[in-house]
Design a protein around this nucleic acid. Structure first.
Lengths: 408, 408
DNA sequence: TTGTAAGCGTTATCAG
DNA sequence: CTGATAACGCTTACAA
């Protein structure tokens, strides 16, 4: 359909081509250094030169030359960021169209401008896992909304591995700013590199990171409120089903040692919150936020012969659903026999909730999307040289029907 | 001409000078209006220049100078792609560390090399919506897996709007290749631009696009097989609940006009497949793939006073679930009163399926992840200058318990 | 093994 | 309003 458009050189544009300097022609020709190239129908004007080396597109310089203007003028015609007479502008655009030039090369532009129009989003998991967690997806939503409106695209980057070359992607990719989202592993070294590169870093729910703008959620206090609620109901025997403690992601009970060496800030904050109310609440850690992991943890808690807690604080809704599922399967009723609290307030649509009389999870609802938006705004602000605005968000305890007073 | 070599002598001591403190604040100001400060920056060499504009990191050239080697040598020391004596290599690295230089600037590198290490993934929806559809997420999984292993990051780009400036993100972002994923809107113009830029394009389930490598799914034939299965069961009265027909996404019955002007390839292919068996099967179109949309479509089909079909072919599993839900709410039993077929074979975990005796959707299971992987591989191959491998995938009819012979 | 030189394709600056 | 020119920071033949 657009055959003609893809054959820019064929048109008889020689008339439009003013004198190219002999020097530049020689330059371009010498680059080719391929003797056989001469076999191709070579034109000896500037236009042809642009196509000599390989199947490369015409450059802005070529367009300028063909239009009989200076490169700088042609640049202005495209970027619109400067005074160009409508007349010349049209001429340049026309010539460009004829040559099949559709605008500046992003790579060159970003080198020259020092900006690439890209914000990196660093996720803790493999992308496959990250996408499965609504927590990440919803936060990304917020980021994408703001970034998109600003004409900035998102580069997905996996959190750097402890591996030495592991942070290559974070360092080799062109990015103007970086948003750390749900990064539980300790990535200070990577952040240090970014700082040295003067790349703004925004950290969502991370421990205080030198030089990163924090987007904060009241993980600790929210958890404390949930625990307090359980205490009001009369619970004394509360267990925490926790998110991973570190990048090793080992499943199992949490002991003081593991707790001390944890690198997962959010996990620890939520745990600390509960401990403010139940100082010696035991905790079991999972390998990630999923229904299945919750089920596994719950199965252990409600195993026969074990003294089951009267209430469970799960550190995510997905985990909570899993725990409930395990409870039901163990023949316990929720909330009569065991209360369960979640965290996040995502829309959990699992069948298990519906096969029981449960309609709504008791959970801490957090504002994902605004959080993402704030992160993106902070990143954009820093790009503009403005002062970033750290933001703090609050979770609300939403009382559903998975909590009730203990039977005893 | 050779400005960089102009003042080689004075650089040594300057190169070691750490960054000016408090310079960051001056950035914006000096760029715009600080005349006096900039009085003599013109004479400076690379080192000086690096500090003038803004608080920028040291350059490779600066490191080289400080280490007393040529830039090229320093470059080799970092890229490892060339012979450098271990001795000088160490020295260069040491000096670099001292200066706080952590490797080449991705922007400059990508200009010089003509590669940015980024693959663009173009999604049809707002990212928020895209992430909600398992179809996209699973495909992304596959892409991410392959791209990640190759050290390539993914740039998320929204499908260009029909709007003139709408394709800016696709054109302004640095990308080495582009994968179109589930792009139902017609984006030929955008693709034409990419072609002219010699950026490889891989199109997953798109209509034949000039110059794009296709990753194909047997949408039409699979749909035909599903329809054939319904016919075997004895159904005569089949309605299609379809995905959007175009970017306008208007809900409602499909007429010949709308059908003709459709830009949604996948939608049309799946529709055509059914029509091969039921040439005059009516179809209603939805605004997207979601349970809710399926429910809306179903509600209309099963409204009182309307002759309901004995079977519904939904073009996605999410839609199918919605249709089933509507059927149940209308007092119909599935599959006794109405059969429903889906498409995709995602893991649908909706409560409605579980409150009824339904355990498994009858659907066409397609290999998302391999499809994504193939797309990524094709893109990478093209980057290497190898011949891309178009790929074709097949969907399997999985017979569940949402289909049965019609009552009459 | 190391150095020299020549850009990659733009945009910013400043002079006309 | 337009043009000349110098970078942006790096890589890579090719020369020494």
């Amino acid at each position: 359909m657009d055959d003609t458009a893809s054959e820019p050189g064929e048109s008889d544009d020689r008339a439009l081509v003013p004198r190219a300097t002999g020097a530049s022609r020689a330059t371009a020709a010498s680059r080719a250094s391929r003797v056989t190239d001469v076999a191709r129908p070579t034109r000896s004007d500037g236009t042809g030169a642009a196509r000599v080396g390989r199947a490369s597109r015409p450059t802005l310089a070529a367009v300028a030359r063909a239009a009989g203007v200076a490169p700088s003028t042609a640049s202005l015609a495209f970027s619109g960021s400067g005074p160009v007479s409508e007349d010349t502008r049209q001429r340049i655009l026309a010539v460009a169209a004829e040559l099949g030039y559709d605008g500046p090369d992003p790579r060159a532009r970003s080198l020259r401008r020092g900006r690439s129009g890209v914000i990196g989003v660093v996720l803790d998991d493999r992308l496959s896992d990250a996408f499965r967690d609504p927590v990440n997806v919803l936060t990304l939503d917020g980021i994408a909304e703001v970034a998109g409106a600003a004409g900035v695209s998102l580069l997905l980057v996996r959190s750097p591995l402890d591996d030495e070359r592991g942070m290559a992607p974070l360092v080799d990719a062109p990015m103007d700013a970086v948003i750390l989202i749900g990064c539980n592993v300790r990535i200070d070294p990577a952040v240090a590199v970014l700082r040295r590169r003067a790349i703004p870093v925004v950290a969502i729910e991370a421990d205080v990171i030198e030089g990163a703008v924090p987007i904060h959620l009241d993980n600790r206090d929210a958890s404390r409120r949930a625990a307090a609620y359980l205490r009001e109901l009369g619970h004394r025997d509360v267990t925490v089903v926790a998110l991973p403690l570190d990048s090793s992601r080992e499943r199992g009970p949490v002991d003081a040692d593991r707790e001390r060496s944890s690198t997962a800030f959010t996990t620890m904050e939520r745990l600390r919150g509960v401990r403010q109310v139940y100082p010696s609440a035991p905790a079991v850690v999972t390998t990630g936020s999923s229904v299945e992991e919750g089920r596994i943890a719950g199965a252990a808690l409600f195993a026969p012969g074990v003294e089951a807690p009267t209430a469970v604080v799960a550190q995510s809704d997905l985990l909570a659903v899993g725990v409930i599922s395990a409870a039901l399967e163990a023949g316990l009723r929720v909330p009569e026999d065991v209360s369960v609290v979640g965290f996040d307030g995502i829309h959990v649509d699992d069948s298990l909730l519906h096969r029981s009389p449960i309609r709504q999870l008791t959970t801490l609802v957090q504002p994902f999307v605004p959080k993402g938006e704030a992160a993106a705004r902070a990143a954009l602000a820093m790009l503009e040289g403005e002062a970033p605005e750290p933001a703090s968000f609050r979770s609300e305890l939403q009382v559903g029907d998975t909590t009730a007073p203990p039977r005893r």
